[in-house]
């Protein structure tokens, strides 16, 4: 990109353009980021003066059973959402990448949950999960269940139910990431494979998936960050219950900070979450780097 020095342009012109963004960056990102690190070494309940407690918050984390429950639940979210957000959307993308009349309408319908608020989605799914709701009718009708389940009140089913809702809401988004990738694959690759007698499964396995590796890598990274931050669905549907079955790190941090006013402790947990997320992003980058296939 050639961006030479422009005659007549004053040295400070570029900075003037960037000032609004830089001020917002300083006030709402840099300053809070530094505050977050400071807070995690303090005991602070908003009302009284903050007290420096050294590493005490981190020591408390290690011995806090609810923290480990929350971490485990967050990891279960991550694992549970993997097939919903990384695998199924790829199949959906292949499906809506066909040249058929009206295919745009189907893409739009699959994308609809992405544009609606998580609150509305949570409310809608409470109707689906109702004891006398559609899901119980389908599953008992098909003989999979003997009797209806109250999914959101059941310590075993509550977490899978929330994973399903979060995954359902975002599938369309991941489908579009993959669709963008699919449209870069030259059609003649498929033609050649078809001439060689390769079936649909073979074409998916040996052409689509290898060429989609960079997009799968993007999907995996975004999925991990999304899953580790799940909050609104939990707030709307279960409040972390029953018996902490859906207590995730995101919800626990929020609850510690804004229900119990343990700002320091909540920040320390936030810092741990932050480090975890960066570590995952780096790991994922390391694992997928170099496997990028250039078409």
């Amino acid at each position: 990109m050639a961006a030479g020095r422009i005659p007549g342009q004053r040295w400070y012109t570029p900075y003037l353009f960037a000032i609004p963004a830089l001020v917002l960056f300083g006030v709402f990102f840099a300053w809070p980021a530094i505050t977050a690190i400071q807070l995690s070494f303090l005991e602070y309940d908003v009302v009284s003066q903050p007290v420096f407690v050294g590493l005490e918050n981190f020591v408390t984390i290690v011995g806090d059973g609810r923290f480990w429950t929350a971490l485990l639940n967050s990891l279960l979210f991550l694992v549970g959402m993997f097939p919903l957000l990384v695998v199924i959307p790829l199949l959906l993308a292949v499906l809506v990448n066909q040249k058929l009349p009206g295919i745009r309408t189907f893409r739009m319908l699959y994308y609809l949950p992405v544009v609606t608020s998580m609150v509305a989605v949570g409310v809608a799914w409470e109707y689906v999960f109702h004891q006398q709701g559609v899901l119980n009718w389908l599953l008992t009708g098909a003989g999979i269940l003997d009797r209806p389940i109250q999914y959101l009140l059941d310590p075993f089913w509550a977490l899978p139910a929330l994973v399903l809702v979060e995954g359902w809401k975002s599938m369309g988004f991941y489908m579009m990431i993959y669709l963008a990738g699919l449209q870069t694959i030259p059609a003649n690759l498929y033609e050649a494979a078809r001439v060689d007698g390769a079936g649909a499964w073979h074409r998916l396995r040996h052409i689509t998936v290898p060429l989609m590796v960079p997009y799968i890598a993007v999907a995996v990274t975004v999925e991990m960050l999304d899953a580790m931050q799940a909050f609104t669905s939990i707030y709307v549907m279960t409040k972390g219950g029953p018996q902490d079955a859906t207590l995730t790190l995101g919800y626990y941090i929020w609850s510690a900070a804004f229900e119990h006013y343990e700002m320091g402790y909540a920040s320390a947990m936030g810092l741990v979450l932050w480090v975890l997320m960066i570590a995952m992003a780096i790991l994922n980058y390391r694992l997928t780097r170099g496997r990028t296939v250039m078409p």
């Binding site: 809070p32 980021a33 977050a36 900070a257």
Partner: peptide, 21 residues
């Protein structure tokens, strides 16, 4: 890069300090 780095500050982590700011 400073601006790109904001993508790696998870919303939940920023919630508390940003509220205080």
């Amino acid at each position: 890069f400073a601006i790109l780095s904001t993508m790696f500050l998870p919303g939940e982590v920023m919630l508390i300090p940003r509220f205080l700011v």
